[in-house]
Structures are given as structure tokens and as C-alpha cells.
Design a protein around this nucleic acid. Structure first.
Lengths: 184, 184
DNA sequence: TCGAAACATGTCAATAGTGACAGGTCGAAA
DNA sequence: TTTCGACCTGTCACTATTGACATGTTTCGA
């Protein structure tokens, strides 16, 4: 349940309406880090406001409300980000990694097909993130404009590593099946 | 909702009881890929049995039931693993990456502290996975014994990439704040 | 033989998140 | 001027998952 922190983080950079926050989750943030729809965002903003971590600073047309973090909210965000990361992330739920675990349940021929597909997809990811990175190359790393820049570089390196792994795994698999073939 | 597939994958490698499956999620699988408690596993096994994807093949002491995948279950698992991975993983929920996104919301000094902590943690992860890999070095890649070996190598490379990134990000940050300091 | 630990399965209330449904406002182009 | 698309907020039923609670069995070492 990191949604409240995601919202605090976004609002800490720049006050925004629920609608704007919903849009933010439809970009790279929601694509690579954490996804949320408006149906969870609006209630969560209400809860954060109740707790005094955010507040409505303006009301605009179409009934829109602009939220901003309070000092308490900023403190909460800071302590969450500076907290020991090892303690938190226990609710792991990573479908990519799960697929890699389950690869062993396939026969070698199928595993090879799956790996080839992974290699393709990660290559596409690398290409896409390279574009994202280039688009932000001249912006500062910290603050509104730099938002997500460090994350883009991180994603790029992760995809690159995943791609290298897939290639490696395929050669391993080939060597393996080959030697089994010779032995038997 | 990949829990059913995780269960099918585990059972495809070796029939097991709900209890044994629960234990499996407490090892590397649950630590790095997908976590689930017995309270979701037992009902899910029931659902899979209803759908004819698994079946009870034996009943042991203490009321234990051993489940095995049926041919239909194996087919379902295969098609899931060979399916285009890009289509699926839309419900992203990765707290690590989220933290990296939100780093921009901190001031440079705090961001640096957070990065240092990440560097520490990823270094520890690399060390741990190196041990896991060494322990499995001589086992075959596919099948019961090799289970998770490919995944261990994958995890190792991911941690290594994350570590390199954290180091890189710190130097970037240092250069950045330094130049800002000179300009003003 | 007694007790602890591991084995083995379950219920239930509470929380989190999704998708479908719903309703209204404003700006701009046709 | 009308209509279309973007803007903006919400409810609600349903599904998934968790944590607390509950219960009984078998094994093994002291």
C-alpha cells in the first residue's frame, strides 16, 4: 500500500487535482512503477486530507480541487523515502520475475521460445527508455522538471540487464540440452 | 492475479500439498517474485480443482492432500508462459521503482542519503544471490532441481544493475549540486 | 511419556483495488 | 449553436489478499 506515498510524492513536487494525479499515473510512473486508477485516488486523497497530510489549496472550474502537501505530509514522505528500504518491500508481486521462475516448468524447447520473446520485449524496452532519457537529457535531476529522470535511467539499466540475461539464458540452455543429447 | 499460474508452475514441476506450496512461497520465490500466504493458496487450489486444472492425487496423514496438474492445467501454464509478456504485466506495482521516481521530490541532500541506502541494500542483495547461485551451480537448468536457477541469475543481474545505478546517480547528483553552487 | 515443533487445513472480518456505471462542466471547432 | 472531446468527481459491487483466530495430528527428542 504505497499509494498514499506516491500521491504525497507527486503533490510534494507540485500541487495538483485528483484528475491531474490520475493522468500522472497513466505516464511512465504508472507504466513502470505503480499503477492506480481514479477510483482509488479520490478516496485516498480524502483520507490523506483527514490525516492532515494534504490540504485543498484551491477550487477551480468543474468542481476541481487542487491539493498540496502539508508540512506533516512532507515529513511523512521524507521518512518513508529515507527509511530502510529492506524493511518495507515484503509484499513482492512481480509477474516478470515469476515467469522466470516458472520457466523451469517448461520443456527446453518451450523455455527457449519464452526466452526469445523476453529478449525481444526487453530490447524494445531499452529502445523506448533510451528515447525517454534523451528527451530529458538537459533537465536538472531533482525537482519538478527532473521528475522521473533518475527512474528512467534505472529502468533503462534494468531492461538492459534483463535483455543480457535472456541472451545468456538461451546460450546456457543450448549448451545444456546439447550435452544432454550427447550423454544419452 | 498470477497466483493460479504460480501454483500451476510449482505443481507442474512436482505434485505437492497446500502446505508444501505455502513453504515454497517462503523461499526465494516469495522473496523475489511473488508472495502468497496459505489463506489464499488453499482457496485457490480449490478453484483450480473445480476448473479441472489440478487434481488431488493422494491423501496423506493429518488430512493432507497432494495436488498435481492435469493436462489441461499444463496447457494453461504453457500458454501463459509463451504468451506475449508485454500484453500481461499491466498491473505494475513495484515499490522499489516508485521510490526512485519519488527521489526527485526530496532535496539533494536527502536524495543522496536515500541513494546511499539503496546502494548498500543492493550490494547486500548481490552478495546473497551470489551465494544462492553458487549453491545451485552444478544442477541442470530445467526441471525440478534447476527450479529458480535462471531466476537467481536474473535477480543477481538486476541487483547488480540497481547497484551500479545508485552509484551513478550519486555522482550525477554531486556534479549537479556542485555546478548549481558555482552558478549562484 | 510428555511437550514442543512442525505438519496440515481452514474461517472470517477487514482492507485494497478494479471495472462498470453515473453525472456534470467547459472550450473550441464545425 | 451545437456537439464533441477533454475535464472533473464520484458510487458501488465484486474480486483479491491479509492477519487474526481456530483446530487437530504426527514426529521426535528429552
Amino acid at each position: 500500500m504505497s499509494l498514499p506515498h506516491a500521491l504525497l510524492g507527486l503533490l510534494a513536487v507540485e500541487p495538483a487535482s485528483g484528475y491531474a494525479l490520475t493522468k500522472a499515473f497513466e505516464t511512465d510512473l504508472g507504466r513502470y512503477a505503480w499503477h492506480a486508477g481514479h477510483t482509488s485516488i479520490y478516496p485516498e486523497l480524502g483520507r490523506l486530507a483527514e490525516q492532515g497530510l494534504v490540504e485543498v489549496t484551491a477550487e477551480g472550474p468543474r468542481g476541481s480541487r487542487t491539493y498540496a502537501v502539508t508540512p506533516a505530509g512532507r515529513a511523512e514522505l521524507r521518512s518513508w523515502l529515507l527509511d530502510d528500504p529492506a524493511g518495507h518491500s515484503r509484499r513482492v508481486r512481480n509477474e516478470q520475475v515469476l515467469r522466470m521462475f516458472l520457466l523451469s516448468a517448461l520443456d527446453p524447447a518451450d523455455a527457449r521460445i519464452a526466452l526469445a520473446r523476453i529478449a525481444e520485449n526487453t530490447a524494445a524496452g531499452v529502445a523506448e527508455l533510451r528515447r525517454v532519457r534523451t528527451a530529458h537529457a538537459d533537465k536538472p535531476l531533482i525537482g519538478r522538471e527532473g521528475f522521473g529522470q533518475l527512474a528512467a535511467e534505472y529502468g533503462l539499466r534494468q531492461y538492459q540487464a534483463a535483455h543480457d540475461w535472456a541472451i545468456w539464458a538461451m546460450t546456457q540452455l543450448d549448451e545444456n540440452t546439447e550435452s544432454v543429447g550427447l550423454e544419452r
